[in-house]
């Protein structure tokens, strides 16, 4: 019966390409509401340590102690990219800390919309910390949408301003190593995070901490330390656990010679 129900849901995908996605999203949203409800009723969720995120406060503190600035880049994608959205939520947390400690925060932007969003987010963070007078809109600035011109300009900022802390969070392309190496050469503590699989190795070798894929998405909830927000992380884990079970069962069933799971995913059978 369960197979028939799943098959019915997944059949829609074969015809219209949306069935499985819709089904998975419904499950995920249901899990999200379930865990959110639990959090509101007072449940607390524990999260394992993520070294890169634990280092965020330490990195901001280092810049404060050294009297130097923090440089934060949201990557080379537009605001419609998931990694950019995740990066903007982390920017909010970083800006709050920077405002609290009175540390200068510079955000060179690749995309004009992302720049406007960053400005609003940072301003809001300063406002929440009661430091809106210290907010400098000019520190969140647009450079260009040409990949290597942007890279050259950020490298220029790095070597001239010599920030103590560099955050490279978002989606990156071939410029990842250039940025991270320059940050490394000026002795900055660097925390990178991206879901660009091809760029992760470069960040791993040249940055102090690297958030790998999902860790970037989890960062906002992790840094918030708020049960309501952490409940979203619990829902994500629920989704991953389902996928884990699905993959294991699917492999066993397929190995036994059945194509049922492949059919569910819309493979040619």
């Amino acid at each position: 019966m369960i197979f028939n129900f799943l098959n019915l849901m997944f059949q829609i995908q074969i015809k219209e390409g949306t069935g499985p996605v819709f089904f998975v999203l419904v499950l995920f949203v249901a899990a999200l509401f379930f865990f959110l409800d639990k959090a509101r009723k007072g449940a607390t969720f524990k999260i394992r340590k993520i070294a890169g995120l634990d280092a965020v406060n330490e990195a901001i503190g280092r810049a404060t102690e050294m009297g130097k600035s923090i440089l934060y880049t949201t990557g080379l994608e537009t605001a419609s990219h998931i990694a950019t959205i995740a990066s903007l939520t982390i920017l909010s947390r970083v800006a709050k800390r920077a405002a609290r400690y009175g540390t200068r925060l510079q955000v060179p932007s690749f995309d004009p919309i992302v720049m406007s969003l960053s400005q609003e987010i940072v301003r809001e963070s300063y406002l929440e910390e009661g430091m809106v007078d210290s907010f400098k809109g000019d520190d969140i600035f647009y450079l260009t949408q040409e990949q290597f011109a942007y890279t050259a300009a950020v490298e220029g900022v790095l070597v001239r301003e010599k920030p103590a802390t560099v955050f490279l969070m978002g989606y990156f392309y071939a410029e990842s190593l250039l940025l991270a190496e320059t940050g490394n050469s000026i002795g900055a503590i660097q925390i990178a995070g991206t879901d660009a699989v091809t760029q992760l190795p470069f960040f791993i070798v040249s940055c102090d901490y690297t958030l790998i894929g999902e860790e970037l998405y989890a960062a906002s909830a992790y840094l918030s330390e708020d049960s309501n927000i952490i409940s979203s992380l619990k829902a994500q884990d629920f989704g991953k656990a389902l996928l884990w079970i699905f993959l294991l069962l699917g492999s066993i069933v397929t190995f036994a010679g059945s194509t049922k799971f492949l059919s569910l995913l819309g493979a040619s059978t």
Partner: peptide
């Protein structure tokens, strides 16, 4: 943007990847 990006990511990064992992069995 999220409405467009999330279903696309779910389809290409999760479901199609799962399919590719199982198929060779």
């Amino acid at each position: 943007a999220s409405g467009i990006a999330i279903p696309t990511a779910m389809s290409t990064r999760v479901l199609l990847q799962a399919q590719g992992s199982i198929r060779d069995f």
